[in-house]
């Protein structure tokens, strides 16, 4: 017998490195879930994250959510801002879970200090372990649209195509949360992402 809660709650694990926008993305997602009538919880650890360390944010929604943390092997979506971070958290996905990952690589100085090496085979590993992963060159895409910070909205657009949340709520929350002069651009980026998803 398997865990019943397992199937009821939607679990999205958002990962990346400090300063990339992981927290903002998970704020938007949990807000959309709440406005769509769900109970929503999210959990992350702040503190050290600002300084280039690993950042993860757990978002869960359903009729009734207890734990704010996702169990290993139960994430429906792994939404990643950085390729090696996708590999680090791959074990959180359920067998049917999907990967959405930016192809951006951020090599930590620890590697140059000889403390480890960057997983050059990341894409292969992700393909072996998951079905239909979405690799997106989000940073150049965002820069082409006019601002590197749009990576966030592009990735959320892709995720939105896989989640059963009303598109109007997505757009409303994004429009509220970004600076007024970037509103239109963000909505374009969101649609670009949604097309990919």
């Amino acid at each position: 017998m398997t865990r019943e809660n397992n199937k009821k709650t939607v679990n999205v694990l958002v990962v990346g490195t400090g300063g990339q926008g992981v927290i903002t993305a998970s704020e938007i997602l949990s807000d959309v879930a709440m406005r769509s009538g769900f109970d929503a919880k999210k959990s992350e650890i702040h503190g050290m994250s600002q300084r280039g360390g690993v950042v993860t944010s757990h978002v869960r929604y359903s009729e009734n959510v207890a734990s704010p943390i996702i169990m290993e092997g139960e994430a429906d979506i792994l939404l990643s801002f950085e390729l090696s971070e996708t590999v680090r958290w791959l074990h959180f996905l359920r067998p049917s879970g999907r990967v959405i990952t930016s192809l951006q690589k951020i090599i930590p100085p620890a590697v140059y200090a000889g403390m480890g090496s960057y997983p050059e085979e990341a894409q292969t590993v992700i393909k072996q372990r998951t079905t239909d992963p979405i690799f997106v060159d989000a940073l150049p895409m965002a820069e082409k649209l006019g601002n590197p910070r749009l990576v966030n909205t592009i990735l959320l657009g892709i995720a939105s195509a896989m989640l059963d949340l009303p598109v109007d709520e997505w757009k409303a929350v994004i429009a509220e949360r970004v600076p007024a002069n970037f509103k239109e651009l963000n909505l374009v980026a969101f649609d670009k992402g949604r097309d990919i998803g």
Binding site: R3, Q50, S84, R88, L90, H91
Partner: peptide, 19 residues
């Protein structure tokens, strides 16, 4: 649930740093 094995290459250290 079966123990989820960590993916190879997922253990590269990324400690927080001085900016």
């Amino acid at each position: 649930p079966p123990v989820q094995e960590k993916a190879p290459g997922g253990s590269m250290p990324r400690p927080p740093l001085l900016c």
